[in-house]
């Protein structure tokens, strides 16, 4: 889990810029994510954290700069882009499980339709993954029948089913009732231990301290500061970060 386990980084962003109309949401972002690294992105609302995350699997396009994933510049569209996306898992704040499919089908859809995995094999793997996130007994239910925490764990299993090289988490616990936050964080901590490369937008300091290798503080579309979790939370270098931390620490 230490940095630089491999020679080449998994993600390389160089001078990435992005606008929404007149709004400059990503400003000259330079960021690398190493293989096996767990990166926490933190910062005030509207700072561009989600956008940053979403550019990596190209759910958002960029205006300028370059993003290299696993040695390859992100493809523009088509089959190549679909393939890239299949290698980058994504877990959303609002879970986004396929509402008309059962839990099991949610997990097997990607492998069978994108990878062409045989159904019984995909089923078997889905059950293993659901077991791992503690939802195996709910496999035949529909998403709406599960609690938020359970749905989010299924979403993690769905991402894992593709054997991704990396998983992006965009505020995975923000939509959850407080008592369900930990069950999701526990699964994520387990993934981090197993060496999954993760980029996690979250304000959960406990998770950052336990699982992250690095914290990136983002505001106004810029990376303002980056450091190890301990350093960042106890000894932030910039006024913006200190100001932000004082606000989230009070509640």
């Amino acid at each position: 889990m230490t940095e630089n386990g491999h020679a080449s980084p998994l993600v390389q962003m160089e001078n990435v810029n992005k606008h929404f109309g007149a709004l400059h949401v990503l400003r000259d972002i330079n960021l690398t994510v190493s293989r096996g690294e767990v990166l926490v992105v933190i910062g005030p609302s509207g700072g561009g954290k989600s956008t940053l995350c979403r550019t990596i699997n190209r759910l958002e396009t960029i205006d300028a700069g370059k993003i290299v994933f696993d040695g390859q510049v992100l493809p523009d569209e088509g089959k190549a882009l679909a393939k890239l996306r299949s290698e980058v898992g994504m877990v959303f704040q609002s879970f986004n499980l396929f509402a008309h499919k059962t839990i099991r089908e949610n997990v097997t859809l990607g492998p069978t339709k994108v990878r062409g995995t045989a159904k019984d094999q995909a089923d078997k793997r889905a059950m293993e993954l659901l077991e791992r996130v503690g939802i195996a007994t709910q496999a035949d239910k529909y998403p709406a029948q599960l609690s938020g925490g359970q749905q989010q764990r299924v979403a993690i299993a769905r991402a894992l089913a593709m054997d991704p090289k990396m998983i992006l988490f965009d505020e995975p616990t923000s939509a959850l009732d407080p008592e369900m936050v930990q069950e999701v964080l526990d699964v994520m901590i387990g993934l981090a231990r197993d060496g999954m490369t993760m980029m996690v937008v979250t304000h959960e300091m406990g998770f950052a301290r336990r699982a992250a290798n690095r914290v990136v503080f983002m505001a106004d579309g810029q990376i303002v500061e980056e450091n190890t979790p301990d350093e960042f939370f106890t000894n932030a270098q910039t006024d913006r970060a200190r100001d932000f931390l004082s606000k989230i620490l009070t509640h």
Binding site: L59, K83, S86, M90, N96, F98, V114
Partner: peptide, 20 residues
Amino acid sequence: GQAEAARAVGLTFMQTLRLI
């Protein structure tokens, strides 16, 4: 979010439309 999740899994546009 349904279409986004589908695309994020790696489904093509047609698959997303047809399956989700």
